[in-house]
């Protein structure tokens, strides 16, 4: 011990230059931190401006004598030309297409995730996962082309041209399901892979088949993550625009029949604002009311999925 202390550099003598160990005031550092904080805070500002902008214009819409709050939320006819603004005409189409999309994406996405996480060899996974990533990276307008020019003719051949029109919600919903599939698959696979190996090994040690281990042990353990994936997928389906704008028709209609053409909330906004729309008309303001509903619904779904993860997550470590 003593030799070590001696070998250290000699302590400066008392009368050498005094070293101040007090924290220095560094203006540059403080300024940079302030700038970074402002930049980080900007994201809050974006959310606030979304709410303010949508809310402000929607308020103009609701204050118009032609429409009432109740009429907007409780009636089922959307015909701006004769002053009917019942959002259920658009919501019904959104619900129908989203439901079809989930019917397609949920079983396929979950099965893919289970296969990738529990069955596939590392080599097979390294081939299969990029394919799902490519599917996830295709722009939605391309899916729209696919829906209108491949899936619709295919379905019309199967069901009969007299039963299914050129524009219909079924084809849009199916293609939307294919679009959401990779999202659900990759989020669920992350959840499944996060289940510790000890659980897997315990199940196999008890003599479980891979299927039994997956369904009875691993999937239940990853349920919160899978639930979150499903809800995020649903929120994507509700907010999806281009597929429905291309393939599901341009008439607002209150219907839950997937064989019919009907316009979703998003497709309606896209169609109306794509034309020459004059500002501050009731049509223009109504779009903001729809967008506000859309924003609130997707926000609620996203918050719900985050809540599920934090509330039901199984902690293993």
């Amino acid at each position: 011990m003593t030799t070590e202390t001696q070998s250290l550099a000699p302590v400066p003598e008392q009368n050498s230059v005094p070293v101040s160990l007090r924290r220095k005031l560094r203006l540059g550092e403080g300024l940079l931190e302030a700038i970074l904080f402002v930049v980080g805070f900007l994201t809050i500002f974006v959310t606030v401006s979304i709410v303010v902008v949508l809310g402000d214009q929607a308020l103009l819409f609701f204050n118009d004598p032609q429409v009432g709050f109740r009429e907007f939320f409780l009636t089922t006819q959307w015909q701006p030309s004769i002053g009917q603004f019942g959002i259920w005409a658009l919501v019904s189409a959104t619900l129908t297409t989203s439901a079809i999309a989930m019917l397609v994406a949920l079983p396929l996405g979950l099965s893919s995730a289970i296969y990738l996480s529990e069955y596939a060899s590392p080599r097979a996974r390294s081939v299969l996962k990029p394919i799902l990533e490519v599917l996830a990276g295709i722009p939605t307008v391309v899916y729209g082309y696919f829906a209108l020019l491949f899936v619709t003719p295919l379905l019309r051949n199967l069901i009969g041209t007299e039963n299914l029109g050129v524009y219909n919600m079924l084809s849009a919903g199916v293609v939307m399901g294919i679009m959401i599939l990779p999202l659900i698959a990759s989020m669920s696979e992350d959840a499944l892979s996060a289940v510790p190996n000890s659980l897997r090994e315990a199940a196999y040690a008890m003599g479980a088949t891979p299927f039994e281990a997956s369904i009875q042990v691993i999937v239940p353990a990853a349920l919160s993550g899978i639930g979150a994936a499903i809800i995020v997928g649903l929120s994507r389906a509700v907010g999806e625009t281009m597929i429905v704008a291309v393939a599901s028709g341009a008439t607002s209609k209150f219907t839950f029949n997937p064989l019919e053409a009907a316009e979703t909330m998003t497709a309606h906004i896209a169609r109306i604002s794509g034309g020459d729309l004059s500002y501050n008309t009731i049509d223009y303001n109504s779009l903001f009311a729809i967008a506000l509903v859309l924003f609130v619904v997707t926000l609620a779904l996203n918050l719900f999925s985050q809540w599920i993860v934090s509330r039901f997550r199984e902690q293993y470590e």
Binding site: G40, I50, V238, E240, T266, S273, F295
Partner: peptide
């Protein structure tokens, strides 16, 4: 925490809503 949650939520806002934001703020 608020900023972090907010960023996660912004990532899930439908793109068409950003379009409406752009229309009201940048265009007008």
């Amino acid at each position: 925490k608020i900023i972090q949650t907010n960023i996660n939520n912004l990532a899930g806002v439908p793109s068409i809503v950003y379009g409406m934001l752009g229309l009201a703020i940048f265009v007008r």
